[in-house]
Simulated assay, not measured.
Amino acid sequence: MAMTQPAEKAVRELFADLRDAWDRGDGDAYGACFTEDATYTTFVGTVYHGRADIAAGHQALFGAFLKGTRMYEQIDEIRFLGPDAAVVVGRGEVAKKRPRELGKVQTYTLVREADGRWRIAAFHNTKRRSLMEAVSFRLLPASRPLGAAPGASAARA
């Protein structure tokens, strides 16, 4: 479903707010980008439930393992499912300096809430294993994704 430029702009602003909160190490501001009942799955398999859980967990991480990191992300696709729902697929990474490649594939489910703001209702982060992907496609070419979808290696042979 095609949406208006203002809707896409508002979604991109949500991602700018998310990145800014991460870069400042502000768990509350980071959590504010999510719905009250959001789910958040990290690439290591940790699942946070709800805005407060996401905010508190990230504030702890920002004070320790993720201290001083920056969020690097690229939006590959924004697909609107209706006037108040969208799926965003992209790539990302967090590091103290820009990485050579963005090694995580990320899927966000967004909703526009009653206050008119877009927020993240669900997030899933997966570490891309490009070598395993290449081996799989070589051994089983039919497993290669169709078309030129973002992040797909190539069209079927």
Score class of each variant (00 low, 15 high):
28 D>E: 15
50 G>Y: 03
122 A>W: 01
128 R>S: 10
25 G>M: 04
26 D>E: 04
25 G>S: 03
104 K>Q: 15
66 L>V: 01
45 G>T: 06
88 V>M: 01
51 R>Q: 14
96 K>L: 01
50 G>M: 02
97 K>G: 00
111 V>P: 00
21 A>M: 13
89 V>K: 05
50 G>S: 02
20 D>S: 13
104 K>C: 14
111 V>K: 04
127 K>A: 13
97 K>C: 00
34 F>M: 08
18 L>W: 15
36 E>D: 11
24 R>K: 15
47 V>Q: 13
115 D>T: 06
35 T>P: 00
25 G>Q: 02
31 G>Y: 03
91 R>N: 14
69 T>G: 00
119 R>E: 10
20 D>N: 13
93 E>L: 10
44 V>R: 15
44 V>E: 10
16 A>G: 08
87 V>H: 01
93 E>Q: 12
98 R>Q: 14
58 H>D: 09
33 C>G: 06
83 P>I: 02
115 D>I: 07
27 G>P: 02
38 A>M: 07
116 G>A: 03
94 V>Y: 05
98 R>Y: 05
22 W>V: 07
107 T>G: 13
94 V>E: 09
81 L>Q: 09
110 L>C: 11
79 R>S: 12
46 T>I: 11
121 A>M: 06
69 T>D: 07
91 R>M: 13
24 R>D: 05
35 T>G: 00
22 W>A: 11
76 D>W: 12
80 F>D: 03
36 E>M: 08
47 V>L: 09
23 D>V: 00
96 K>E: 07
62 F>N: 06
115 D>N: 14
56 A>V: 05
71 M>E: 11
106 Q>L: 15
26 D>F: 01
21 A>L: 08
66 L>C: 04
92 G>L: 14
77 E>R: 05
82 G>T: 05
29 A>N: 03
52 A>L: 12
90 G>K: 13
118 W>H: 06
73 E>W: 08
99 P>W: 07
33 C>T: 09
63 G>L: 03
40 Y>I: 10
95 A>C: 02
51 R>F: 12
46 T>L: 09
116 G>V: 06
22 W>G: 06
32 A>M: 08
24 R>W: 06
16 A>F: 07
18 L>T: 01
85 A>P: 06
35 T>F: 04
68 G>C: 04
23 D>L: 00
70 R>P: 00
15 F>K: 01
51 R>E: 10
86 A>V: 13
70 R>M: 08
79 R>Q: 09
26 D>N: 13
58 H>K: 08
